[in-house]
């Protein structure tokens, strides 16, 4: 399974970014291989429509789970339409900690 975590930096030890569409980085985690790949969010500084455009990135990567902070209305609709489950990370946690918390069912599902 592939999941995406919004992050402030490009490593698994970076903090989770609370904004979805304007997150500086998306980190993709493959649960089977336990690998992390970071990708710069090219829409972080776009003028508009960042929610659906960022959702498109997840769709294109085939991610099925998203861990982030907050969602805007359009991002919510796009992720819902794509059937992506969304969980809220604990403020201040790192990407790795968020993944562990997800595995242990400790995260709050928001979508």
């Amino acid at each position: 399974m592939k999941m995406c975590i919004t992050a402030k930096g490009d490593t698994p030890d970076a903090q989770v970014e609370e904004r979805f569409g304007r997150a500086p980085f998306f980190i993709f985690h493959e649960s089977e291989q336990d690998t992390y790949t970071a990708e710069t969010n090219v829409f972080a500084d776009a003028a508009g429509g960042v929610g659906p455009r960022s959702a498109q990135v997840l769709i294109d990567h085939g991610a099925t789970v998203l861990i982030t902070g907050q969602l805007g209305g359009n991002a919510r609709r796009a992720l819902e339409g794509a059937g992506i489950e969304v969980y809220q990370a604990v403020t201040g946690s790192t990407v790795r900690e968020a993944v562990t918390a997800y595995r242990e069912n400790r995260l709050n599902r928001i979508l």
Binding site: A47, P52, I59, R77
Partner: peptide, 23 residues
């Protein structure tokens, strides 16, 4: 279409198009 739209109004899923009319 989704790639072209600079307002993020279109998301293209494998078998579905999502359109955001307010964008």
């Amino acid at each position: 279409c989704g790639e072209f739209c600079r307002y993020g109004a279109i998301a293209v899923l494998p078998e579905k198009i999502m359109f955001f009319d307010d964008l």
